[in-house]
Write a protein that binds this DNA or RNA. Structure first.
Lengths: 355, 355
DNA sequence: GTTAGCACTCTCACCAGCTGAGTGCCAACC
DNA sequence: GGTTGGCACTCAGCTGGTGAGAGTGCTAAC
């Protein structure tokens, strides 16, 4: 019974056309597609019997499979992979949609923190799958600005702005005889700003060493500075700050997730920071759009879904990722086109900031 | 056939005990409970036949219902409501759990933005349902601090700290002959800080009027000030800033949501800002813990779930909401006890800030 | 008021038979 | 040799029937 799987070689054009037809049909209908449906709906110029023999060949090559004897064919992960690599030409996003998206980005508050959320929302609504986006995160954050605001006699709020756009906030509790009024905090902030601005965590730590302990303002600055260094270090250490997702509802609607068990697992995988961090890292490293299909995803929970991810930002300075998550049965051509456009748009926006 | 539903009057103790037993049993098992199961598992001191007649009474009162003739009883929404109002005494959270939660809050960065997220996470893990939390939001925000940081020759970043803890960020693009270096920005920020700090949007707008147009720094300050006023106004106008939820996976696991359709609707209702804003408003207005059971929720999508919500914060200054979302078949006693404890804890933390 | 007994109802699980979609194979055809 | 029509075969999914079990409501006796 165990027929040998033929290696996937170059496929003649007709076989490619049929593979493509099977995928297109299955992507829209989600039901296994048979030889007769193919000849009816696609002008293949051959009879169903011929199509059947080609389908059998494609199955031998491992590109298609069979849920059971009397069912039609469905693409395997390898089939989708072959399709993505060799057959599909990325369909660019229609000009009208491009315009609409640009318009939406124009509407939003001109602040980078909104962009990546909007990117996820846009990707979700255009592709009818789930949109994912992370903020652009630098390898080594640089301090841009430090601010201290008194809250009451015993507490102050530290506001730390990083060059890459994110803002960190922390409460500082004052100790024993430390100075506590706003003017003193202003002095301390001034000291810290002159010494630490444009520094990374490492260099900032070194610069703090010269602060004197016997001066009350400098001692305060030193203590706050140490806290700042810790915050920046922690920020550098987190592989990924946040993954914003939108439109997970779209994926829930897919019939393959009708019994919510599979989907639940996907949800829990998405909560796993280390996996996402790794993924973002590999996409950022590759520097171009990446497609992960079904079993190509490491975690078991993700093996029923596919990801189309692209990096954006400035290599070496700050890099984020945008993309789409959908069932393996998704429209890769549309997803790739859309993700490519949105990541390009994000690049433009970031360029604006650094220009 | 249509038997008259008797009005819900005071229930004798034995009927209450049986209603309670039905609810407890159904909450844990999710299968309709019969008279025999009740006498076996609860020392009621009567036979199943007696229990049956009481169950029939409770059904006539509309507190229980019957999926079909040969099935056991399940509580109606009215049954849960009666249980919550008249029978259950709120079980305080066990001391050990209280300690563990306090410990977790101690571990986290001492910054208010983390608290409400941790609250949602904690509620989710303790009650095994979904935890919800919103940040504390004031009625009228007060400006605490303004900062301007140059990004490049044409752009600056505006950082606006509100007294109530949140931080707003916006990009300012500079026009024509406007000043653009950091020293100038510092001067403008200083002007704005002296005039606008501790002001609401309305009063801030008035104070900007006195700035002169012919001085380039003051003109810049005026323009940035107008932007600040707009940001604060918009913040005041949004009923609810953000609802953080955690543990929706817990709810997905409940057997009543096995066919994902119901749950999907719940998800989409949760994305509806205006509904949530209204809800938060009503809970904040009531000033105490509120329970919304099944059909008591306005949106159709939410009629299969229940909410236990409590406000926290300081009335008149800043109010947020924490709570739990679960199937109507949830452990109300535990949920109420846990939500009460967590909201109390949040109150303590906020008091610390304002003390 | 409580209880045991009993007839009744209805779901659920299981099984069998049927149907139809789709396949694989083969012989004939171009 | 590739292509095609024909045909037997397979198997999921639907349908209907049957039996077991759980639980009810009613009634008569305590």
């Amino acid at each position: 019974m165990a027929r040998r799987r033929r290696p996937i070689g170059p496929l003649d054009l007709r076989s490619q056309a049929i593979l493509r037809a099977v995928i297109e049909e299955y992507v829209t209908s989600a039901i296994p597609v048979g030889s007769q449906a193919l000849v009816e709906r696609y002008r293949l110029g051959v009879s169903s019997a011929t199509v059947r023999s080609i389908l059998a060949e494609l199955e031998m090559s491992g590109l298609l499979t069979h849920p059971h004897t009397s069912a039609g064919r469905i693409p395997t992960d390898a089939g989708y992979r072959f399709f993505v690599e060799s057959i599909v030409e990325a369909v660019p996003l229609p000009a009208i949609e491009q315009l609409m998206i640009r318009h939406q980005f124009g509407q939003v508050e001109f602040a980078s923190e909104h962009w990546f959320r909007l990117a996820a929302t846009t990707l979700a609504s255009v592709t009818r799958a789930a949109g994912l986006a992370t903020p652009a995160k630098p390898r080594d954050a640089h301090i841009r600005r430090i601010d201290l605001v008194a809250i009451n006699e015993r507490m102050a709020s530290l506001i730390l702005v990083l060059r890459e756009g994110s803002i960190k906030q922390a409460l500082i509790t004052l100790e024993g005889d430390e100075a506590i009024d706003q003017p003193t905090l202003n002095q301390a902030a001034a000291i810290l700003n002159t010494r630490l601005v444009d520094q990374t965590a490492k260099r900032a730590a070194a610069r703090l060493a010269t602060l004197r302990d016997d001066d009350r303002v400098e001692a305060l600055a030193r203590r706050v500075g140490a806290r700042i260094v810790r915050i920046v270090q922690e920020y550098d250490a987190t592989a990924i700050e946040e993954v914003f997702s939108d439109g997970l509802l779209n994926v829930m609607e897919a019939p393959e997730f009708a019994q919510s068990d599979k989907l639940r697992r996907v949800f829990s995988a998405l909560e796993n920071r280390s996996y996402l961090g790794e993924l973002v890292g590999s996409v950022a490293g590759a520097g171009r759009i990446q497609v992960f299909i079904g079993h190509e995803n490491q975690p078991l929970e993700m093996q029923d879904v596919s990801l189309v991810l692209a990096p954006y930002g400035r290599p070496g300075r700050a890099i984020g990722v945008v993309g789409v998550l959908g069932p393996t049965r998704m429209s890769y051509s549309q997803a790739i086109g859309t993700v490519r456009f949105v990541s390009g748009l994000m690049n433009e926006l970031v360029d604006h900031l650094y220009a």
